[in-house]
């Protein structure tokens, strides 16, 4: 096995033409950033115009530990008024 010739793994984030944020869509292997962006275009956008692509080598992504969820999120969870379901709105109101 060619261990020393493995292409690193990259995480891909795409913002669609009408989108507001970059969304994580998956990962792929590429030898460098230019290739990663082109591959992302070919694989995850099917050549759609006007999209923005971010690529980050997976090793540079740091994620929160789900076991910390209590400390991180519970205080916010208490504040129930932040959640949309807190508000009792009529059924006829759509898209909110």
């Amino acid at each position: 096995m060619e261990k020393q010739h493995n292409w690193p793994l990259w995480e891909i984030f795409i913002r669609s033409k009408q989108g507001l944020d970059h969304k994580h869509v998956g990962s792929l292997h590429a030898a460098d950033a230019a290739m990663a962006i082109e591959n992302a275009r070919d694989v995850y956008t099917r050549r759609m115009e006007g999209v923005s692509i971010w690529v980050v080598e997976s090793k540079y992504i740091h994620a929160s530990n789900p076991d910390d969820a209590g400390a991180f999120y519970d205080p916010a969870n208490d504040k129930v008024y932040r959640h949309p379901t807190f508000y009792d709105l009529p059924d006829e109101l759509k898209h909110m």
Binding site: E2, Q4, N6, W7, A31
Partner: peptide, 15 residues
């Protein structure tokens, strides 16, 4: 494809 993958890594390092 081995030589291709190898070359791409070599080039990335050169860059």
């Amino acid at each position: 494809g081995a030589w291709v993958r190898e070359a791409a890594v070599a080039h990335a390092e050169k860059k």
